[in-house]
Structures are given as C-alpha cells and as structure tokens.
C-alpha cells in the first residue's frame, strides 16, 4: 500500500464528506424552521426578525450561507445551538465519544460471539446446531432495534427482577461499575443485529473456504485439524468479513440512534433526535456531518486492515 493510495483515499473521504455537507445543508434549508423565530420567540416584531436574519446571514443567497457555514466548520466552528446557545461542535463531539464507546463495545461483543458461532455452523453444516444458529440469525436480522431494546428491557432490565439498571449514563471515570452496568443493555441490543448478520457472513465464507482446493490440499497433507481450521481456513474466511463489518458500521450508527433514545443514553444519536425534534439547525448539521465522517473513516480503517491482512491486495 503506497502513500499515494492513502492520500487518494483520504481525498475521496474528503469529497464524500463535502457532498454530505451540501446534502445536509440543503435539507436543513428546506426544513420548516425559521432560526430567527426560534431565537426570538413567536412574539418578535418583523423589524427584530429582519435584524436577526441579517446578523445570522440568513438574508444572503443559499450558496453564500453554505460557504459561510462550511468555512467555519473547516475552522472547527460548527456554530451555536439555537436551543441552548452552547457551541454545537463541542456538544456533538462529547456525545460522539460516548456513542463510540457504545459502538466499540458492541463491535467487540459481536466479534466474540459471531465468529465462533459462524465457524461452528459452517463446520456442522446441515446439522441441528447449524440450523439452529441459522434460524436464530434470521430472527436476529429481522428484529428492529426498538423491538430488541424493549425485549431486553422487560427481561434483563425489568425493575421487578432488579438485575440491571435500565436507563441512563454514568461516565466510567466517575463510577466504573455503575457506568458499565448501564452500558450492558444498550450494548446487548445493538449487538443483536450485528451478530446475526456477521454470523451468516462468517458461516458462508467459512463454508466457501472449507470447499477450496487449498483447504483440501491441507487435508491431503495430513495436517492436524486445528492447523487446518485456524491457519488455513479461518484466516481466509475472516478477511471478507472485515469488509462486511465495515459496511455494518452504517447500520450500527443508525441503530444507535434508536437504542440511545430508548435507553436515554446521551450519545450523538439521541442528540440528533432531540435536535431534529427541536428543529435546531446547527445541531442537525453538525451531528449529521460528524456521523457521516465517522462512517467514512471507519470504512477507510477497515480497508487498511484488509490490506494489511490480505497479502494479495496491493493498492498502488
């Protein structure tokens, strides 16, 4: 992998994020919301509104408004919330940090559960355990997060059982055990769809790899079973899985929006929902842009990991 490839990929991401910024800005322009009204309240006089619009640059042509906005964004200034008056960038990045913690823990749990299950299903193809795992994964990919979340809530989070706290967030630095306990349910919920999806992927890749000539050749060399399974088969089966996991990050970020809402978890998804409900344009713009950029970066990371692991791929 060359430096020029890396540079080109970074440029592509920049281009993607730029297009996203235009899209998001465009959408917020047609949103039925008037920032001036929101700032001054319903009782403002027309003169006051005109004055505020001029101060905010809302009387300028759309493209000038966009350039002004993106210019500030590039300097790290996402504007201030119409609702709270706080700097939006700071708020969103703090929320993103919490969301990333949730996302990473979910990914970790997914890997730990999905890979062994997928491998078992592939090795025991056509038997009861394979069919069971297959059926469970069908159900898993077919449950929207809000259904999973409510299911998790009425079982593990049910106050009648007193197992786990059902909602809220406590920073791990403040109360490690309490914080962790509050992460269990959201992480579990987010993982379900991911696990179900990745299990199917690992299984089908593993089945393919087990049928390749090189695995058959390894068997015909009389190698030990662990060696065939781990060195020859699993390694090659996991490579394509990385790409799928990268694409799943899109679902992950989408799913997190709902899960955060249900578990009252103050991440970027919940912040976005609140912003949308309040028509808080700067917050919507910043949140959407940050999420898209995160997604694009995650995809780049997955590509780099793939390239590092698969020696056949050389990006020129």
């Amino acid at each position: 992998m060359s430096a020029s490839y890396l540079l080109r990929r970074l440029l592509t991401i920049l281009l993607t994020v730029l297009i996203v910024s235009m899209l998001v800005f465009g959408i917020t322009q047609v949103l039925p919301a008037d920032a001036a009204v929101m700032l001054l309240g319903e009782n403002a006089t027309p003169e006051q509104l005109v004055a505020v619009r001029a101060r905010l640059g809302l009387d300028l042509p759309v493209w000038q408004q966009y350039l002004g906005w993106i210019g500030h964004v590039l300097r790290g200034d996402f504007g201030t919330s119409l609702e709270t008056g706080l700097p939006v960038g700071e708020v969103m990045f703090t929320a993103l940090g919490r969301s990333l913690l949730l996302a990473l823990l979910s990914l970790l749990l997914m890997l730990v559960v999905a890979i062994p299950l997928g491998v078992v299903a592939a090795l025991r193809r056509g038997r009861a355990s394979d069919l069971g795992i297959g059926l469970a994964s069908y159900v898993g990919v077919s449950m929207p997060e809000f259904v999973t979340a409510t299911l998790v809530l009425i079982t593990l989070g049910n106050p009648a059982f007193g197992l786990l706290p059902s909602t809220g967030y406590v920073p791990l630095t403040e109360d490690f055990r309490g914080g962790l306990a509050r992460l269990v349910l959201p992480v579990l919920t987010v993982s379900v769809i991911l696990v179900a999806h990745v299990v199917r992927m690992v299984r089908s890749e593993m089945v393919d790899v087990l049928g390749t000539d090189y695995v058959r050749a390894a068997r015909m060399k009389g190698l030990s079973r662990p060696r065939i399974l781990f060195r020859h088969a699993l390694r090659n089966a996991l490579l394509p899985t990385i790409t799928v996991v990268a694409l799943d990050i899109g679902y992950l970020l989408g799913g997190i929006i709902v899960v955060e809402e249900i578990f009252a978890f103050p991440g970027i998804g919940r912040a976005l929902i609140v912003a949308i409900q309040q028509r808080d344009l700067p917050s919507i713009q910043a949140g959407a842009l940050i999420m898209a950029a995160t997604y694009a970066l995650a995809n780049l990371l997955a590509d780099l990991a793939y390239a590092a692991l698969d020696k056949r791929i050389r990006y020129a």
Partner: peptide, 12 residues
C-alpha cells in the same frame, strides 16, 4: 493437485 494457484493457501 491440478492448479497450484488454487491449491496453495494465498495467505501463507
């Protein structure tokens, strides 16, 4: 085997 490109593990 017939095809050495297929019978050698690409990541080994």
């Amino acid at each position: 085997f017939q095809d050495p490109s297929a019978s050698l593990n690409p990541t080994l």
